[in-house]
């Protein structure tokens, strides 16, 4: 009897162990096997380049000469006296300040429009999203053709009204062409905002309407606060992308044997253009790496500042007795 009870207890205790058959026996190994491609990629493509760039930023390596010297923090201090770097930073800041809010506002406005029960809604959604999936090289080519001073459609239209042709792709107008080209891809922001809009419970909006709120009040008091986590996401990713913008400026400029990356019009001379020029036109690998590390630090600081600033304005889904913003949560 006792033996039987003990045997039952042992069998009972063994049951969970028997249940973990096959790969489930090696949960640790399975976990690591699944994450290893990402981890390998992270080490090879992020951690190693970051470390290598940090080391380069402390040298005067020129890319081709085998020899180089350790120069300490000189590359970093040189940035402060590099007027081109400061100019590029200012142009990048301006580009970010315009494209990020404009992209979010436009994207949200379009999302609100295509979220309404209108006829042909799927078609409108597809049409508005389409520019976002066109490769940027194709978009740039179209913009260059449209704004070409000799053959462009825009100057032809201006000509019908007797207005003199404008050199759109030169300073200072080329900056606004770049802004327009960037905002042309606003469909991707629209899609994110649309998914946010569709996640807002209808009963909240209906309740507000029953209480006498008009459309604008519902949008301002209900929709925007509930969309605020999505908007925060768009702001952060938008800023990170805008600060690193390179391709639009490069593609809108003309590259030939007599022009280099430094021929990019001054109003489109973005920070990453300067970095690229330092690497591959001037062969200043050390200095360019220092510029990149400064940009990396700047992005980190900007992200932190945005997070801090959003503490009292971003509302997270919460129960009736829970604080809605991060600041309120901390205070609670």
């Amino acid at each position: 009897m006792t033996t039987s009870v003990v045997g039952d207890a042992v069998r009972s205790a063994q049951r969970p162990a028997q249940a973990t058959q096959g790969w489930k026996r090696y949960r640790g190994r399975t976990f690591y096997a699944f994450i290893s491609p990402w981890l390998l990629g992270f080490i090879l493509l992020t951690l190693f380049p970051l470390g290598y760039a940090l080391w380069l930023s402390l040298t005067n390596y020129d890319g081709l000469t085998g020899r180089y010297h350790y120069v300490g923090a000189q590359n970093y201090t040189d940035i402060l006296s590099d007027n081109d770097a400061l100019h590029a930073l200012w142009r990048t800041g301006l580009y970010t300040l315009i494209t990020v809010p404009a992209g979010i506002v436009l994207g949200l406005a379009l999302a609100v429009l295509v979220n309404r029960p209108i006829k042909g809604r799927p078609l409108f959604r597809a049409l508005l999203y389409m520019p976002a999936v066109v490769p940027i090289v194709g978009s740039a080519l179209c913009f260059k053709l449209l704004f070409n001073s000799d053959y462009g459609m825009l100057n032809s239209v201006l000509g019908w009204f007797g207005i003199s042709s404008i050199d759109w792709l030169a300073d200072p107008t080329v900056f606004w062409v770049m802004i327009a080209m960037t905002l042309w891809g606003v469909g991707s922001t629209m899609i994110i905002s649309l998914s946010g809009l569709q996640g807002i419970p209808q009963e909240l909006q209906e309740a507000a309407r029953v209480d006498g709120a008009n459309g604008w009040q519902v949008f301002r008091r209900i929709t925007v606060p509930l969309l605020s986590p999505i908007i925060l996401f768009e702001v952060i990713t938008g800023v990170i992308f805008a600060v690193q913008a390179f391709i639009p400026a490069l593609l809108l400029s003309v590259q030939s044997a007599s022009t280099t990356v430094t021929s990019v019009p001054q109003s489109n001379y973005l920070y990453m253009i300067h970095v690229y020029a330092q690497y591959f036109a001037y062969g200043r690998f050390g200095y360019a790496s220092a510029l990149l590390w400064v940009l990396f630090a700047l992005i980190l600081i900007l992200t932190l500042v945005i997070f801090k600033a959003s503490a009292s304005t971003v509302f997270y889904e919460s129960g009736p007795d829970e604080p809605a913003t991060r600041r309120e949560r901390r205070m609670a």
Binding site: D84, S258, T259, T260, V261, T262, S263, A277, F280, A281, Y282, G283
Partner: peptide
């Protein structure tokens, strides 16, 4: 390329 870059810039 460095001379070209500086001149054109």
């Amino acid at each position: 390329s460095a001379i070209d870059a500086s001149l054109s810039q």
